[in-house]
Design a binder for these strands. Structure first.
Length: 187
DNA sequence: CTTAGGATCGCCT
DNA sequence: GGCGATCCTAAGC
């Protein structure tokens, strides 16, 4: 059955997209839930993979908006981003945490953990739970295996400094669902 | 509760 | 050759 399509405008600045994504439902091959934490990155952003221009690794970030940019973190964690702005710009949003809703047993098996709060509370965990890999690099977000659905209810968004970066730490481009128990870290 | 270190590898200097 | 947009475990307060 069809559901409400998402009204996210991925051509907008990445911080706006990151804020709008909070509360949105994300599924990969039917597995997923509600996005509760994101981070924005932009060209001219010292913390961004695109800061020093286009490379083979970050090419998808310079592709069309509304597509996936996937990268391998620390040699072992696959992380998922949504490309923003116009093609060629080099901006995106890192999906950092999800509230598990559908396919929970699949996520438990992939993670090797039982607790709901440990399934998707971080970009690496989320990538593992949703089965993200190189195969998802550059794929459009409005077609299988991806599916996005509008937030089922209004949410209150909170913001703070980004996590795990060494540059531009003062930029307040981390967004989260207020009071959520599924964040990678509290705000 | 907080901190420190190891795992592991593609990409860039 | 060095370094991460991370995670986990073990040890220290």
């Amino acid at each position: 059955m069809e559901n409400t399509h998402v009204t996210i405008d991925f051509a907008a600045p990445s911080d706006q997209v990151a804020r709008q994504l909070i509360g949105t439902l994300l599924f990969v091959d039917g597995v997923g839930g509600r996005i509760v934490e994101t981070e924005a990155y932009d060209r001219d952003d010292p913390a961004s993979h695109t800061f020093n221009g286009q490379t083979p690794r970050n090419a998808a970030m310079f592709g069309p908006p509304g597509h996936a940019y996937v990268y391998l973190s620390y040699g072992m964690h696959w992380c998922l981003n949504f490309v923003c702005r116009e093609e060629g710009h080099g901006a995106g949003v890192l999906i950092r945490a999800i509230e598990p809703m559908t396919g929970i047993d699949i996520m438990r098996a992939r993670r090797g953990v039982q607790e709901l709060r440990q399934l998707c509370s971080g970009p690496g965990k989320l990538g593992q739970a949703l089965g993200i890999s190189r195969a998802h690099y550059g794929l459009a977000l409005d077609a299988p295996p991806f599916a996005l659905e509008a937030a089922p209810e209004a949410v209150t968004v909170v913001a703070g400094p980004r996590i795990g970066i060494s540059k531009a730490q003062e930029t307040v481009w981390r967004f989260g669902l207020q009071g959520s128990r599924f964040l990678s870290k509290p705000f």
